[in-house]
Design a protein around this nucleic acid. Structure first.
Ligand SMILES: [Zn+2]
Ligand SMILES: [Zn+2]
Ligand SMILES: [Zn+2]
Ligand SMILES: [Zn+2]
Lengths: 135, 135
DNA sequence: AACACTATGTAATAATATAACATTTATAAG
DNA sequence: CTTATAAATGTTATATTATTACATAGTGTT
C-alpha cells in the first residue's frame, strides 16, 4: 500500500511547500525576488532555490505565472485541472489579478482552430482593464 | 495642408525606424539584446535606446511583445487595428510565432464578460502547441 | 547494495529592464 | 522668426529577473 502517483503529486517538498504557502496566502501576485526576501528566514537563501520551486509548482498547477508581470499567484480553481489553460484579469491601476474560470471561455479556446485547422490545448490569456474598485 | 495625425503615426523616428526594419524583416521574434547587437553598426549603442524604441513601437501597434518569450515581432495584421487585443500561436519546439487574426476570436474575447459582468477590450492570448513543420 | 530520480546548497554569471540626467530635434503657436 | 512644448536621443550606472555549473543529499525501487 504505497503512495499513489496522485498522493505523491500533492506532497510538496520542503522548499516547495514554504514557497507555495507564501504565495497562497498572498492577496496579490508575488515576484521571485520578493519571495526570496520573504523566505530567507526559513533558510532559503538563493534565487535558484526559489526558481526551482516555482518551476515545479507551475508544472503541477499549484501556481500560475502572470507572464506580463513576471509574478506568481496560487491557483484557486480547485487545484486547477487546467494548469496549462489559464486566463486572468489584470487591473492596470492597482495590479489586482484574478484567475478566470469560465467553462464557456475554456471550451471556446480549447476548440478554437487557427486558419490551418490547428487546435491548442495549452494557452494563456491575460485580460487588462480596471477592477471594480478602480473604476 | 499639414501632416495629419495618421500620417504622423506612420512616421517613425530614426531609432524607431532602424529597429522596426530589423524586427519587420526577421522571420522570428527578436529579443531586446539581440536587437541591440544587430543595430550597433547603425549607431545605437545602449539598451535604453532599444527599449525606448520598442516601447513606442508597441504603443503604436507596429510590433507586439510575446510576453512568454520576452521577444518582439512585427504586426502583420495590416498595421494592427488591435494593438491591444493580440493573439499568437507559439511552437514549443521551434519557437515559431504566428499572429492570429480571427474575427471570430477577437469578437468572442472582446465580448467576453467575467462573472462580475466586466468586459475587456485589451487582452493578450498566447496559444502553445506544435507548428505544422514540427508535428 | 546499486540504481535512478528528485530535490537541495552554493557561487558565479547571464539576460532583461529601468533610473537619472543632459542634450537635441521636431512640432505647434504666437 | 521666436518662443514654448513635447518627443526623441545619448550616456552612464544600476536594478531586476533568470540560468549555468557543480557538488551534495534524500527518496524510492530492484
Ligand atoms: Zn488555476
Ligand atoms: Zn484595481
Ligand atoms: Zn498585430
Ligand atoms: Zn515548430
Amino acid at each position: 500500500m504505497g503512495i499513489s502517483k496522485i498522493d505523491k503529486m500533492q506532497n510538496l517538498s520542503k522548499n516547495q511547500q514554504i514557497i507555495f504557502d507564501l504565495i497562497n496566502k498572498s492577496p496579490e501576485p508575488l515576484k521571485a525576488y520578493t519571495i526570496l526576501f520573504n523566505v530567507q528566514k526559513k533558510g532559503i537563501k538563493a534565487p535558484l532555490q526559489v526558481y526551482r520551486a516555482l518551476d515545479k509548482l507551475v508544472e503541477i498547477g499549484k501556481i500560475h505565472k502572470i507572464e506580463s508581470r513576471n509574478a506568481f499567484i496560487a491557483c484557486h480553481n480547485s487545484s486547477c485541472q487546467v494548469a496549462k489553460a489559464t486566463a486572468f484579469s489584470i487591473c492596470e491601476i492597482c495590479e489586482k489579478v484574478t484567475e478566470i474560470s469560465s467553462a464557456g471561455l475554456s471550451k471556446y479556446l480549447a476548440n478554437f482552430k487557427d486558419k490551418d485547422g490547428m487546435k491548442y490545448s495549452k494557452y494563456n490569456l491575460e485580460f487588462f482593464g480596471l477592477c471594480k474598485k478602480c473604476r
